[in-house]
Amino acid sequence: MRTAILACLLALPAIAQQATLEAPLPDTLFPSNFGGDYVLTDHYGNARTQADPDGRLQLLFFGYATCEAICTVALPIMSDMTRDLSARGIEVTPLVITVDPETDTVETMGPALETFAPGLTGLTGSQTDLARVRDLFHVERTLLFTDPRGVDVYAHGSHIFVMDGDGGFLTLLPPILSTDRMVEIVESYAAG
């Protein structure tokens, strides 16, 4: 099963027919906001709230460091976006909130992320605290199965949330967009 999922996800970036997604009409409000107040622990062991310490825009994703499906697509994209936005003079903070705190601990999350998504900061916490944060973002997490190695495999939401420096919701990015398009979108919010 994992091979099939990987084969689907690890193909080329989604760019071929992206133009057909575009709808040149004014933006509308989403039915609800995403996000809110939270306190988790980053992979350096520091308390981390919804506000960025440096007031930067934040890219936020829910996943886990041992995920071999959508995380292997979304997290490197966030790493690339951070680099590309910095080149345009826009500093952002990329964050991943774990859906698997049993595996993603303060000690393990940083090194695991560094292997395929350099620059990301992992956030972890108790199951209760993490469930509450998922609720704030309307993100699901479902345990699919435990693989033969004993690793739990989860299905989980896959949008990248773009938050302002205070933790306010700006927009979300489906992971099917190209990195360039995501950079353009985030840049538009940074300018706004």
């Binding site: 999922i5 996800l9 057909t20 997604l21 489906p174 992971p175």
Partner: peptide
């Protein structure tokens, strides 16, 4: 597989418009 892996689903209308 893709849905289980977290890919958002879309609704493809007859005119080719995709709604996320």
């Amino acid at each position: 597989w893709c849905s289980a892996g977290g890919i958002p689903v879309g609704l493809l209308a007859p005119d080719g418009t995709v709604y996320m």
